[in-house]
Design a protein around this nucleic acid. Structure first.
Length: 531
RNA sequence: GGGCCGGUAGCUCAAUGGUAGAGCAGCAGACUCUUAAUCUGCUUGUUGAGGGUUCGAGCCCCUCCCGGCUCACCA
């Protein structure tokens, strides 16, 4: 059974699926794995006849800690401030930095993937006092919190430490304050200049109520509190958090022992690596979500994340054959789903995998599976030949007119293939007519092939073929006249124009070039002395 | 040091307890109009090592070896 369906079969009653993201830091392609996974889980729950909500939270009470994202004059003032209070970059009319960044960049990648969670902003949960009862519990039971940190993670907190981060009333920063002395309604705090290295506190000291949005819980407690506030029943997380003694363990212990709430079911998911290496934006290895989305249409991007089980590493190297093969594998699964015979082994419940790769919430699986999908590599090739009518060629391949859905799929693939040719396609997938010099490969042609080229030059000059069809006919006819097997005739042409042993349909290739150049090159190639 | 994932054909990978198999590469062949297409045939295995469970193990359990990521400060 498909893993998401297995999960859905294992639960009962109404479900709340939750995921969240801190808006600080760059969003790269790997960040989308969790989103797509949670969406698939949500759809699996609905498909199993359960009630389900899919929530997505933005951690905008977190402190701004990335200097690279601020203009230099804003660093002094906003480093350490809650992201909800950092203004959006110049030119944006968003209400805050967090809203700009997440709204403009991250959410725009959700919509095309057919993912529509209910968004919520953590700063609003605090401001609306929905977190207050958990803040009080955390402070009342600070000793329990400290002992959990010690027991689960071997982190020792001083006895005056309180699990709360106050927003400084003077400078507005949250990353620089240290709170002590909870008296049941207020805490004392100091905004320390040297609390953290990346932000400077103002030195203010005060006493304030931590409720109603004036403070936030530290990460692990906030996570647990949210499970309680929102009634979360399923929430996966990356393996960096799920390690023994790590964040997830701490939050689960806090949820049970401090808030007395049963934590949600976990689905730990592995990372997405690029070419066997971890993604790192600082090393230029990270692929921004919107960049890869130009090359991979939504369905293939979903497929990339949904085909492996969640706890398997995905090694995605956009170079080489990876992208064409991803399309081919998708098409194979589509064909199998449509009931056609395919080669090779299929994943268990491949039709479920196919359905979840389609854009939700309730796609036409049968129609999509049966649709004609042009082979990606073939399409990329055709795009490089001048004067090819792609739609007509595809119709000929299918043997029937394309439906509206198929035309849309074709347009989508054409755009992907163009983007691929410009970005990740290997040299061997790119065609280039060698205009400037004779390819060295011509030296490998034998006498019969050179004679063929000479004869073709003469015939072309006399008959002046004007179309791909006319050229193709001539190529075959001259081959027949000179007694050369057609495959070797084509080989000679590819060597003379492309410097390779094979290529696209030669007639259309030659028809796209200037007649004078074609004849001249044919003659020159025919005259080359064999190596 | 702890955790997770992986190790299967020359390469990339599939196969969730039931005959180890695909793509690419290679070899041989077909084709007078898809020539990076299509079709036919062939070849390739100590499934990292060892033990265990089972009628049956690539898959489950145990012990190792190798590689990758991750955590151990904060969020």
């Amino acid at each position: 059974m498909y893993w998401a369906d297995e999960l859905a079969a294992a639960v009962a009653g109404p479900q709340v699926v939750n995921d969240s993201k801190s808006p600080s830091g760059t969003v790269h392609i790997g960040s989308l794995r969790g989103v797509v996974l949670h969406d698939a889980i949500h759809r699996a729950l609905l498909g199993a006849g359960l009630e389900s909500r899919f929530l997505y939270g933005v951690d905008d009470m977190d402190a701004m800690d990335s200097q690279a994202l601020l203009t230099p004059d804003a660093v002094e003032r906003y480093m350490g401030a809650p992201l909800s209070r950092v203004p959006a970059p110049a030119g944006s009319n968003a209400a805050s930095y967090a809203r700009h960044f997440v709204g403009e960049i991250f959410f725009k990648t959700f919509e095309p993937l057919g993912i529509k969670p209910e968004f919520y902003w953590v700063s609003e949960l605090y401001a609306a006092s929905r977190m207050d009862s958990y803040v009080k519990l955390a402070l009342d039971r600070a000793d329990r919190v400290r002992s959990i940190y010690l027991r689960v993670s071997h982190v020792e907190r001083p006895s005056i430490w309180l699990p709360i981060q106050i927003i400084c009333e003077n400078c507005g920063k949250i990353g620089t304050t240290y709170a002590t002395d909870w008296d049941g309604s207020t805490v004392a705090y100091t905004c320390k200049p040297d609390m953290v290295s990346w932000a400077k506190g103002c030195g203010h000291e005060g006493r304030v109520s931590p409720l109603g949005g004036r403070a936030k819980l530290p990460w692990n407690l906030e996570w647990a509190a949210r499970w309680g506030v929102l009634g979360v029943t399923i929430e996966g997380c990356g393996k960096d958090l799920a390690t023994t003694g790590g964040s997830r363990d701490r939050s689960e212990a806090i949820s049970r022992e401090v808030f007395e709430v049963e934590p949600p079911r976990n689905v730990t998911y592995e990372f997405l690596n690029i070419g066997g290496r971890k993604m790192s934006t600082s090393k230029g290895q990270g692929v921004a979500a919107h960049t890869i989305a130009e090359v991979l249409p939504p369905e293939q991007l979903r497929f990339l994340f949904l085909r492996p089980r969640p706890n398997q590493v995905i090694d995605f190297d956009p170079e080489g054959d990876t992208i064409p093969r991803l399309f081919d594998e998708f098409d194979r699964i589509a064909a199998a789903t449509a009931g056609r015979e395919v080669k090779g082994e299929l994943p268990s419940d491949h039709e479920r995998l196919f359905a979840y790769s389609l854009l939700g919430p309730s796609p036409d699986v049968t129609g999509a599976a049966a649709a004609f999908r042009p082979a990606f590599a073939h399409l990329a090739l055709l795009l490089q030949i001048p004067g090819v009518d792609i739609a007509a060629r595809m119709e000929a391949e299918k043997g029937a007119p394309l439906t509206d859905m198929e035309l849309a799929l074709l347009a989508e693939r054409v755009a992907s293939a163009r983007a691929w040719l410009e970005s990740y396609a290997p040299e061997r997938a790119r065609l280039a007519v060698r205009r400037d010099e004779m390819p060295a490969e011509v030296g490998a042609l034998d006498e019969a092939q050179r004679a063929y080229l000479a004869a073709l030059a003469a015939s072309a000059e006399a008959e002046k073929p004007g179309s791909g069809d006319a050229w193709q006919t001539l190529i075959f006819r001259v081959a027949s006249e000179t007694g050369l097997v057609s495959g070797r005739a084509f080989g000679a042409l590819y060597a003379a124009f492309l410097g390779r042993t094979n290529g696209p349909r030669a007639g259309w290739l030659l028809a796209g070039l200037e007649p004078a150049f074609v004849v001249e090159r044919l003659r020159a190639a025919a005259a080359v002395t064999p190596a």
